[in-house]
Structure formats: structure tokens, C-alpha cells
Design a protein around this nucleic acid. Structure first.
Length: 259
DNA sequence: ATGACTAGGTCGCCTAGA
């Protein structure tokens, strides 16, 4: 089973690229972030035509998450319980194959800068996410948390740690938010495998950043121990970043040994 | 020079992203 995450920065604009990528890579489940699409405008039919169900939680202009799945969801839930229903950042589904798996798609706040009010929101949001996941893990032992975390967890995930030192996305405090997720029993699947250095999931549109590989690894797939044991690979696919009119992020994928 | 892209909204500029 192939499961992926991709911050597409506008679903409307990127729809043909997304469908093409789904089919080429034989993806079973794709988590999308920054759809920027209200639910009544969601392109449900376009995904249905190629064999996927869609589950979505969107809004106009900003944020918005969705899960595109070959498997019908047994359950769907929206947001972090009752916290923050204004910004559409979380959607979760439960699917069943041989085993039941909880798939949680997240678009974490950016934070803007460490001095910003948006950073206070980022801190609160990660606290709520942590509380939410503690409960989810009790209910769903086979859990996968995919999305744009807006945190580069270590210096190995940053093209130039000196330039980025103590700035948004790489600060020690944000890294502590990420470590909290590890502390409750989740594993960074990318780091469960030997990887080459300087692999990133996001590159700024400006300053030829992609060509110069000046990026960050801020899109992640975390999972519970039972999923780690089923996971055969985790990698970043840079090819969509080379498309015309690309998203500034590229997908991260895992393959699970489940039939 | 604190901006350099890009997307969306509803405009000929602003907010937001990371």
C-alpha cells in the first residue's frame, strides 16, 4: 500500500498534476494540504473518475486539507476536537484492509516569526495536536500522521543551518514541538531508513532555491510502532517540483507491506 | 533596500505562505 502527503498550494491550480502523479505512482492514499478550496467547490468527480474517494475539509483562500483514497473511509473526523474550527487544518479517516489504520492529515501553522502572534497560535496548536494524538493513539494503535508540519526537526533537514539558526521553522522551541510527538510514541518514518544527505520537501519559490537545492524538510510522515514494522520504504519524490507551475512542496511517500 | 515568488481575492494592491 502506497501512502503519501503533499502540500499542493492550491488544489484548483494543481489538479491535473495531482491526478497525473497519483496514477503514475499507483498511490492508494494521498493527504493534501493547502487546498484553498471550499467544500462546495471540491473536485470530487475528477478524483472519482480515476478511482478515488475524497474526504475534505476546506475553506476559501487559506488552509484546507483533504484525503484522496482508493479505500472507502469507515469514519471521518474533522479538526482537533473542538479546538480551532475556523482554520481547516486537520482531517482524519479510518480505513480497513487486513488491519484498521487511522490516517490523520495535518497542515500545521507556519508561525511567521518567533515574535509574531502567529507563533503563539502555532504553540497552542501543537499543544492541542499533542493532546488530540494521545487520545487517538489509545483508540487507533495503527496510526499514521502525515502532512506539512512547518518544522525542520534537525539541522540535517536544513540546507544551511547557520543561515536558518533560531528562525521560524527551525527554532529549538519548534523542534521541541516535534520531539513531543516522538515522545508520545510516534516515529519519523523518513529517518527509519538510511537516506542520502540534503533531501528536502520544500524549496522557496524565490532565488532559484530549488535549482540550488536550498530547501527544508518540513513535510513528514510519523507513525505508531506497529506501522513502522510494516513500512518498507519512505522517500521524497522531487519530480513534481520540476513541473511547470509547481507547488513549492513536493510529496513524501511510504510503502506499507499490506495486501 | 528586509524585497526578491506565487496564489487568491476582487483588483491594480493586499494578505499569506515558509
Amino acid at each position: 500500500m502506497n501512502i503519501a502527503t503533499w502540500n499542493v498550494n492550491s488544489l484548483r491550480l494543481r489538479l491535473p498534476q495531482i491526478i497525473n502523479w497519483l496514477l503514475i505512482n499507483n498511490i492508494d492514499i494521498l493527504c493534501l494540504q493547502e487546498t484553498k478550496t471550499p467544500d462546495d467547490k471540491f473536485p470530487y468527480d475528477a478524483f472519482e473518475e480515476v478511482g478515488y474517494k475524497s474526504y475534505f475539509y476546506g475553506q476559501k483562500s487559506y488552509n484546507g486539507v483533504a484525503i484522496i483514497s482508493k479505500y472507502e473511509a469507515l469514519e471521518v473526523s474533522y479538526g482537533l476536537k473542538d479546538y480551532d474550527n475556523e482554520q481547516k487544518r486537520v482531517i482524519s479517516i479510518t480505513i480497513k484492509n487486513n488491519i484498521s489504520i487511522r490516517i490523520i492529515c495535518i497542515y500545521c501553522p507556519n508561525g511567521q516569526s518567533l515574535e509574531s502572534n502567529k507563533f503563539i497560535y502555532k504553540r497552542q496548536w501543537f499543544n492541542k495536536l499533542n493532546e488530540f494524538l494521545v487520545e487517538e493513539l489509545l483508540k487507533y494503535p495503527n496510526l499514521i500522521l502525515l502532512g506539512d508540519y512547518n518544522i525542520a526537526p534537525t539541522d540535517a533537514d536544513v540546507h544551511d543551518p547557520n543561515i536558518w539558526k533560531n528562525t521560524i521553522l527551525v527554532s529549538d522551541e519548534e523542534r521541541s514541538f516535534f520531539k513531543e510527538l516522538i515522545n508520545i510514541g510516534l516515529y519519523d518514518l523518513f529517518r527509519e531508513f538510511k537516506q542520502p544527505s540534503s533531501l528536502f520537501s520544500w524549496w522557496d519559490y524565490r532565488n532559484l532555491s530549488f535549482i540550488k537545492n536550498k530547501g527544508l524538510r518540513i513535510d513528514h510522515i510519523l507513525a505508531s510502532k506497529s506501522i513502522v514494522n510494516l513500512c518498507k520504504s519512505c522517500f521524497i519524490d522531487k519530480t513534481p517540483r520540476k513541473n511547470k507551475q509547481p507547488s513549492d512542496h513536493t510529496p513524501v511517500l511510504i510503502n506499507l507491506e499490506i495486501n
